[in-house]
């Protein structure tokens, strides 16, 4: 990172979870935040969120995790929280090949909607869920290769049910998000003086002059 944070800085990191319907987005989030798993499926409508405080590299950060509806038609509903995202988690189900194949389009969709400043380096983390099941269709190696090809996305195989790798994955997610946030702030800090002057003083005049 190389950035200097003051300890007092409070970080709220936004993480958004994307992936096809039924891959376990909500379950992963629940396992991480509440340490619970339910095999009862309850489709997420629109979007939902949970927050959790985590300690990353000796720093307390608040993770706001956005869980999204996997059904495609819900994509059209609204994407306000895409833009604040510091990290995007792409989920698939290792027992359903199609969910893996869809990752590319989820990634593209995110980049379009979120339009991050530096799309190539925006942090994604890829989770292959349901490794507790036998009927595997997606090989770890294939997933790994795909992740490599997309600018080295970190890849984890998880099981929300058995709590395999969930903690580890979310730690990495938090790190990636923190790194992203740090870069954003560094970006900001370089120009903070200028901004202060501008934001308080000169802007209103601009608007006035233009509206006539």
């Amino acid at each position: 990172m190389g950035m200097n944070f003051t300890q007092a800085t409070w970080f709220c990191l936004d993480v958004i979870i994307l992936g096809n319907s039924g891959v376990g987005k909500t379950s992963l989030m629940n396992q991480f935040v509440n340490k619970k798993f339910s095999s009862q499926y309850k489709a997420t409508i629109g979007a939902d969120f949970l927050t959790k405080e985590v300690i990353v590299d000796d720093r307390v950060v608040t993770l706001q995790i956005w869980d999204t509806a996997g059904q495609e038609r819900f994509q059209s509903l609204g994407v306000a929280f895409y833009r604040g995202a510091d990290c995007c988690v792409l989920c698939y189900d290792v027992t359903v090949n199609k969910t893996f194949e869809a990752l590319g389009s989820w990634r593209d969709e995110f980049l379009i909607q979120a339009s991050p400043r530096d799309p190539d380096n925006f942090p994604f983390v890829c989770l292959g869920n349901k490794v507790d099941l036998d009927q595997r269709q997606v090989l770890a190696q294939d997933a790994q290769e795909w992740c490599e090809s997309k600018n080295s996305i970190s890849h984890f195989e998880t099981s929300a049910k058995e709590a395999i790798n969930v903690e580890k994955a979310f730690l990495e997610i938090s790190r990636a998000a923190l790194r992203q946030e740090a870069e954003d702030q560094a970006y900001t800090n370089d120009y903070s003086d200028t901004i202060k002057i501008n934001s308080n003083q000169s802007q209103p005049q601009q608007a006035d002059s233009c509206q006539c």
Binding site: W10, Q185, T188, Y191, I197, N198, S199, S202, Q205, S209
Partner: peptide
């Protein structure tokens, strides 16, 4: 509590400098 500097304003910073007096 989050840092509130506006990085996006940086984009406009240069172009608005000339209007600072206003």
């Amino acid at each position: 509590g989050r840092s509130l500097h506006n990085p996006s304003s940086q984009r406009s910073a240069k172009s608005t400098k000339k209007d600072e007096s206003s």
